[in-house]
Every structure is written in structure tokens, then in C-alpha cells.
């Protein structure tokens, strides 16, 4: 998978290569988000914070899915910000059929909806389950693993903001080491989240051998849309893990949401790759790599690391080692960019 469509890589599009649209190329080569007729599946008036990455990522993903399957999409949502800020009864921001049941059972409910469409003979209706990292990697993990194992015909999208944001920024198993949350305060001998904990859900999904797994970022729109589109071309269980910065929980400025996501990709902490049936098939090379500290510096959840001292240096070096390992594993720094 490339960060942008092939057609845009020719040398003439230096200005529009990475942008959402580009008046110089045909409409097909532009992102779905550049279209006047995009679905706006998640529309205005929602109650997400200013600059919410999750609100952005969800519109990106669902609009792309809508485009990919002729607007025949139903979504099942786990509890979390994405559910709470979009549907305070009696209002909804969703412009698609949408269901909510519980925090931990979105995958199981989606399996049921998929079964219902099969029974009713409507295979053209495609089912997406979605939730936050808490709903996915923690409480919803059992249902999700079952959905993978049975290869149910559902695309599960995790919007990873690296914590339980809706209830006040508690730690989840997707919170990175050292990050300060309400439950991992920046105090004591090991301030912030501890090293050696947490799960890497994309790799766990791969271990199930399901048809398609991908990671994506709100900072790489063309890539994100291409992955959602590709996911919709498969039947069976699919998983996309999208990193969505949370200004509130991360302590970043609302205006910098996309930039923070971009830095996360550029330093190697959030690798962009895709895998089919358990094998990595492609990764997005990093354009102009940066050290992790340039990413950490943008968020108050890492502020305690910036106070200097040997201990902090060591922690930053350990985070750098994680990034370096990603770069090696997914071959993220290579000549072609």
C-alpha cells in the first residue's frame, strides 16, 4: 500500500500529491473526502471536543466504506466517545443505519447483524463494527476474538486514542508506556504507564489468520481510504486499527490533531502496514523520519519526560527503541521516498 494513489506519484503533482484533493488530477485520484458528494456519515452538530481525531477518523473511514459499497453500510458501535458524542438521545449525527448496544459486545452484535442480512438474502449490505481502544483491546476483546476466529463477515474498526477517554482518560491496554493518564499519574518511581504492558491488537488480529488487517492514521488520508476500500473488497473478518489523537487525553492542541498523528507515524511509533491472512503485505515508508522526542514533545501526557535527567533520557531511549524496532520490522525507512 502506498501513501497515495499511483497516479499522483508522477512528478507533476508536487503540490497536490499529499493533499486531500488536487484540482489537477481526475476526481478518481482524489480522496473521497475531497468530494462535494461525500456522505458525511458523521455530520455536524456532534458533541466531540474541538479537533477530535476520533470524529475525524470515523467520518474518513465510514465515508470511504460507503463509497466502496454503494452506500449499503450498517454500523454497530461500542460505548465510548464515538457513541456518546454522536448520539445523545434524541439526536444522532449518523447518516447511516447505526446500532448501539453495550461497551463490550460490538463485535458480537455485528456478527448477529451480519447473520441477519445473510438470512434475509441481502449480502450487499455490509456490516461494520467500531469502537474505541478500550472497547476493542480490553472489554470487547473476547467478542472480537470470537468474531475473528469464526471469520464472520464484519469489518471491525478500532479508533485508537490510547485510553478510556470518554470516562476521563483512564489507561487502556493500548496506552503507550510512560503516558500519563488518570490511572497512571506522572508520580512516583515509574511515572505514567509502565513499560512491558499492553497489547498490540493489529498483530493479535493477524495471528487469527483473518483475510485482512491494516493500520491507518488520520494523517494519511489517501492510505486510510485505500485500506477501507480494500477491506470492503474482502468477505470474512477484517480489522482496521486507526490512530486518532485525542486533544483532551493527550494534552495536545486541537489544531494539531493531524500533525500529532503525522509525527507519530514519522517517528516510527505508529507503523502503517497491512496484512493478509497473517502475513504483512505492505507498509508505508516514512517520508523524512524524525526522532520520537519530536512526537512526545507535542503532548502534555509526556511532559514529565521532558524534564531532563538520566532516568527520563533512558525512558525516551526505550521509546525510541520501540520505534526503531517498528522501523526494522515493517521496513519503514527505505530509499523509494
Amino acid at each position: 500500500m502506498e501513501e497515495m494513489p499511483r497516479e499522483q506519484q508522477v512528478k507533476f503533482y508536487q503540490k497536490g500529491t499529499y493533499t486531500v484533493g488536487n484540482r489537477l488530477v481526475n476526481a478518481k485520484s482524489r480522496a473521497v473526502q475531497s468530494s462535494i458528494t461525500r456522505n458525511n456519515s458523521l455530520t455536524s452538530g456532534h458533541r466531540a471536543c474541538q479537533g477530535c481525531g476520533e470524529a475525524l477518523g470515523a467520518r474518513y473511514a465510514i465515508d470511504a466504506a460507503m463509497r466502496a459499497c454503494n452506500n449499503r453500510v450498517m454500523a454497530v458501535n461500542a460505548t465510548g466517545c464515538l457513541e456518546v458524542f454522536t448520539t445523545p438521545y434524541p439526536e444522532t449525527s449518523w447518516q447511516i443505519p447505526w446500532l448501539h448496544s453495550l461497551f463490550g459486545n460490538a463485535a458480537a452484535v455485528a456478527t448477529g447483524v451480519a447473520a441477519a442480512t445473510r438470512v434475509k438474502g441481502k449480502p450487499e449490505i455490509r456490516i461494520i463494527a467500531q469502537g474505541g481502544d478500550g472497547g476493542t483491546t480490553d472489554i470487547g476483546f473476547g467478542c472480537l476474538s470470537g468474531m475473528f476466529e469464526r471469520n464472520d463477515d464484519v469489518l471491525y474498526i478500532c479508533y485508537d486514542n490510547e485510553g478510556y477517554m470518554n470516562t476521563g482518560v483512564q489507561r487502556s491496554s493500548a496506552t503507550p508506556p510512560t503516558a500519563r493518564t488518570a490511572t497512571t499519574p506522572a508520580v512516583g518511581k515509574e511515572p505514567g504507564n509502565v513499560f512491558g504492558t499492553g497489547k498490540n491488537l493489529p498483530r493479535i488480529a493477524m495471528a487469527h489468520g483473518i483475510p485482512y488487517v491494516a493500520t491507518a492514521s488520520v494523517a494519511a488520508l489517501h492510505d486510510l481510504e485505500a485500506k477501507v476500500t480494500k477491506a470492503m473488497s474482502f468477505r470474512g473478518a477484517r480489522y482496521i486499527h486507526i490512530q486518532v489523537p485525542c486533544p483532551l487525553g493527550w494534552g495536545s492542541s486541537p489544531a494539531s490533531t493531524i500533525n500529532v498523528a503525522r509525527l507519530s507515524v514519522k517517528c516510527g511509533l505508529f507503523p502503517l502496514f497491512e496484512a493478509e491472512r497473517g502475513e504483512v503485505t505492505s507498509s508505508v515508508p516514512i517520508r523524512n523520519p524524525i526522532p520520537v522526542i519530536d512526537f512526545l514533545r507535542t503532548q502534555r501526557r509526556f511532559a514529565h519526560l521532558m524534564k531532563g535527567g538520566e532516568e527520563n533520557e533512558r525512558k525516551i531511549a526505550k521509546l525510541q527503541a520501540i520505534a526503531d524496532e517498528n522501523i526494522r520490522r515493517y521496513n519503514l525507512v527505505r530509499k523509494e521516498v
Binding site: K11, F12, Y13, Q14, K15, G16, T19, V20, G21, N22, R23, L24, R30, A31, Q33, S34, N40, L42, T43, S44, H46, A48, G51, C52, G53, A55, L56, R59, L221, T257, I258
Partner: peptide
Amino acid sequence: YEARRCMSCGNCFECDNCYGACPDN
């Protein structure tokens, strides 16, 4: 190629980034 290197400083070149990037549509 050369003309397309211009970054259009301070003047919209219709890249749709703003339209795409708004979380609030």
C-alpha cells in the same frame, strides 16, 4: 513541472485539505 513546484503561498489552490480536515464537517 516547474510551475507546479510553486506552493501558492498565502493563496488557496483548492487542495481540499480544510474541507477534508474538519472534524465537524
